Simulated assay, not measured.
Amino acid sequence: MSTTPEHDRKIAVMSFASVYPHYVNKVEKKGRTKAELHQVIEWLTGFSDTELQELIEKKVSFQEFFEKANLTPNASLIKGVICGYRIEEIETPLTKQVRYLDKLVDELAKGKKMEKILRAE
């Protein structure tokens, strides 16, 4: 599945800090915690709480966020549809990485067990 270059550009320049509060709100509204959200983000990107906070304060773009990330080798196990796109069919690496994060946040909000979210089983 191909995304448009315009779509990919919008994602690349969007600030992680502008989306982060929506992630927090989404998971907390469904009874999950900010700590669980940070655990999921750390699993995907390798960022500690301190590093994550620094990136939020610097208002880095998603492009810079994922350039600095040390993506888990198990990221390719994240599959399914998010925002109308089948993740495993997205061709643009950055867009795919952002959708990985969106999918993990969605799974957390839907009450999925942490072991499954972190692809430990």
Rank of each mutant, 00 (worst) to 15 (best):
I41Q: 02
L37M: 04
K30W: 01
H22K: 12
R9F: 10
E57Q: 15
A69S: 14
Q53H: 13
D49W: 07
Q39A: 12
V81Q: 08
L55N: 13
I56W: 02
A120G: 00
S2E: 12
E89F: 11
R99K: 07
G84N: 08
V13Q: 13
K10Q: 14
A109V: 02
E42S: 10
K110W: 09
M14R: 13
A120C: 00
G111R: 03
M114T: 00
L71K: 03
R32G: 03
S48V: 13
R86C: 07
G111A: 11
V27E: 05
K34L: 15
L101Q: 04
L55P: 04
G80Y: 08
E115M: 05
S61W: 05
K113E: 15
Q53G: 14
S76T: 10
L52E: 15
A75P: 05
Q97L: 07
V19E: 09
L118D: 00
K30A: 12
E64C: 05
L37E: 00
E121P: 15
V81G: 04
A120N: 04
E57P: 03
F16M: 15
A109M: 04
D8V: 10
L108Q: 00
F62M: 07
E121T: 09
S18F: 02
T50Y: 14
A35V: 08
G80P: 13
I56R: 07
K26L: 07
Y23S: 06
L71P: 01
T95E: 14
Q39H: 09
A17K: 13
K110M: 15
I11M: 14
E107Y: 04
E36I: 09
Y20P: 13
D102K: 04
K116F: 06
V98S: 02
I11L: 14
